[in-house]
C-alpha cells in the first residue's frame, strides 16, 4: 500500500471540513475522489501535502512512514508526493524555465533534472516554445501543463491533482489526461480530485465519493459510473 489514510479530520477554525476519512492508494494506482462543491476534496489533498493542520487522531502513512512527521517541503522532496493545487499555483512573476527549475529546488541530481525537463517538453511541447516567457502570460491550459510539468519534476511517487480539467477546452483536456496516463505508466500513482465526475470515473480505476466531509461510497470506478445513486447525484441523471 502506497498511501494509507485513517480517520482523517480537518477543521477550519471551529468548522469541520473533513470528519474521519479512511482511504488508501496502491502503488501505481489511479484513484479519484468525486464530490460536490465544498465537499472537502481540496482539503483532503491539502491534508496529505501538509498544507493544513489535521485534527488529533488522524493518521497518514506513506510507504510505511508516518506522513505527519514530515514538514510540507519534505513531503515533496523526501517522500515524492506532489500536489498540483486548485488554481494551478503558477508563479506568474517567474518564467516557465524558472518555474520548472524551482520545482527541482531540493534535487541534487542535476543531470537527471535536465532529463526530466526534456521529458516534460516531450509531453508538453508547447512549454518548450514558451520556455523564456513569463508564466503569468501563459494561457490557462498552458499554465495547467506547466503545473503538471512542475509536479513531474519535483518528485513523482504520487501526484495529487486538484481539478486539472478546470478551464480547459475539450481537446486540450484530452491531451492533458493522455499525458497524465503516460506519467502514470512511468510509475506515478495519481489521486485525482474532480467535480467533473464522469471524466474522473473514466480516468481512474477506483474512486471514492465525498459528501460534506465524509466518504459515503467507494469502489471500482466503472461500477460507480453505472451506480444509480452516483448517476443521479453526479452524472446528471
Amino acid at each position: 500500500m502506497l498511501l494509507k489514510v485513517e480517520n482523517l479530520s480537518v477543521s477550519y477554525g471551529r468548522i469541520p471540513a473533513l470528519t474521519g476519512l479512511d482511504f488508501h492508494i496502491d502503488e501505481g494506482e489511479i484513484v479519484s475522489i468525486i464530490g460536490a462543491n465544498g465537499a472537502g476534496k481540496s482539503t483532503t489533498l491539502r491534508a496529505i501535502s501538509r498544507m493544513v493542520k489535521v485534527e488529533p487522531g488522524s493518521k497518514m502513512t506513506f510507504m510505511d512512514k508516518d506522513l505527519l512527521k514530515y514538514p510540507p517541503d519534505k513531503v515533496v522532496s523526501q517522500l515524492g508526493i506532489t500536489h498540483v493545487p486548485e488554481g494551478r499555483g503558477i508563479f506568474g512573476n517567474l518564467t516557465v524555465k524558472e518555474n520548472l527549475h524551482l520545482s527541482a529546488f531540493a534535487r541534487k541530481d542535476a543531470a537527471e533534472v535536465k532529463k526530466d525537463i526534456s521529458r516534460v517538453f516531450d509531453i508538453f511541447p508547447r512549454l518548450k516554445e514558451r520556455y523564456t516567457q513569463k508564466s503569468g502570460t501563459l494561457s490557462g491550459g498552458e499554465q495547467q501543463m506547466l503545473a503538471i510539468g512542475r509536479a513531474f519534476i519535483s518528485g513523482r511517487k504520487i501526484m495529487l491533482l486538484d481539478e486539472p480539467s478546470m478551464g480547459l477546452a475539450p481537446l486540450l483536456m484530452q491531451n492533458v489526461f493522455k499525458a497524465l496516463k503516460e506519467i502514470n505508466k512511468e510509475g506515478a500513482a495519481i489521486l485525482l480530485v474532480e467535480q467533473n465526475a464522469r471524466l474522473a470515473l473514466q480516468f481512474a480505476s477506483r474512486a471514492y465519493v465525498l459528501e460534506t466531509g465524509s466518504l459515503v461510497m467507494e469502489g471500482d470506478s466503472k461500477k460507480l459510473l453505472e451506480d444509480p445513486e452516483v448517476k443521479k447525484a453526479y452524472l446528471g441523471g
Binding site: 514538514p71 510540507p72 515533496v76 493545487p85 499555483g89 508563479f91 512573476n93 531540493a106 534535487r107
Partner: peptide
C-alpha cells in the same frame, strides 16, 4: 508571488 505554493515545490519556506 504566492507564499502558500512554495512548499509544494519542495522549497523549505
Amino acid at each position: 508571488f504566492d507564499y502558500t505554493v512554495v512548499p509544494l515545490m519542495g522549497v523549505p519556506a
